[in-house]
Nucleic acid binder design. Structure first.
Lengths: 186, 186
DNA sequence: TCTGATTTTCAGGAATTCCTGAAAGCCATG
DNA sequence: CATGGCTTTCAGGAATTCCTGAAAATCAGA
């Protein structure tokens, strides 16, 4: 598996991005190669494409599996493991978001909740706890929204997102009808 | 500035989180200290709170300023620089999101667009370009939504988010009224 | 212009993360 | 139960990132 120039540029770019997203360059590259490949690839094909060691690829694939970002498959009369990414892009986005939430947001919320329980000692703590509470509430608002939207069908999500801020208008309109039917604007 | 146990736990936790978010542990900690402090702090107070070198704090503050995450202020008859975070949590969220978009998403989109322009060589590239295009479209959908929502007043955003997936119902309802006025529910 | 308080820069050592090759593990087949 | 093909583990070297202390730069006031 030799990468074409187009593939190579993409793969290198995602390698760089990987480091900003908490995975190593190699892990980012492995994912990118799988993402661009129409068929599932075995580890040695990835080794050839990236020019890194077999063991590095093995570890990288293990990490990607722990993120549930790659699927494992097999082929008739071939003992090797083949790896691929979901064809549906939205599945990838959902998985990524879920995993990051589980790994970063949820533990943070736990810490914040614990800190809210503790007895404050002095003004500094009183203020700190106020900020901590605000933070926890904001995180819950964001993740609650995310969880709900994530349960919608993909088509619905796309619809919702393309509306953008226009949703606002619909809501205004609904408020008026609901809260004060016939009421005046502003 | 000695940290209380509550402050200390919070600060340590954000130090760890920092590394997953592309900043060093110290930078995360500096931000956390400022976040929990009611008043602006000068660099030496941060040094004392964290027990790291003065130069490290200086570099960390510089980085936080480049992210526009801290504000600089001064006090009567004191030449030192004082730093603080926005009191309004949503301002922080907006800034963070904007900065990450500018630093990670936008450059990625540029690369994807360039790759779409290139002449594909063979089937592999044809498929790759298909995936690249899908990716670019999805990123634009997400960031477009984000940009629009980000322009709303904070109260509106909170309202929108607390509705969560219920928005969906409003949209259904609106569709029906729009597309077939007088149509029956359900 | 000098002084002293403050901030910034930066070379290089410390700490961390990443990657590799060698060896061990696993398992279907003969 | 031995073989060969494939995967995983892991110690330690390579690469990278982080942090520090010393020195330089900045600048307000005398």
């Amino acid at each position: 598996m030799q990468l074409t120039p187009i593939q190579s540029t993409f793969v290198m770019h995602f390698g760089e991005m990987g480091s900003r997203w908490g995975v190593s360059r190699t892990v980012g590259q492995i994912y990118a190669v799988l993402f661009l490949s129409e068929r599932a690839l075995c580890a040695d094909e990835i080794v050839e494409a990236l020019g890194v060691s077999r063991s590095n690829v093995s570890m990288g694939l293990k990490e990607l599996q722990s993120w549930r970002l790659v699927r494992l498959s097999h082929q008739q009369g071939d003992r090797r493991d083949y790896y691929s990414t979901p064809g549906e892009l939205w599945d990838i986005v959902r998985t990524l978001a879920e995993q990051r939430k589980a790994r970063e947001i949820d533990p943070t919320l736990t810490v914040l909740r614990e800190l809210q329980m503790q007895e404050p000692s002095g003004d500094a703590d009183a203020y700190a706890q106020k900020r901590i509470q605000e933070t926890a509430e904001l995180i819950e608002l964001l993740t609650g929204w995310f969880d709900e939207v994530n349960r919608l069908e993909t088509r619905r999500i796309e619809q919702l997102l393309s509306l953008g801020a226009q949703v606002q208008r619909v809501l205004d309109w609904k408020d008026r009808l609901t809260i004060m039917p016939g009421g005046k604007d502003k």
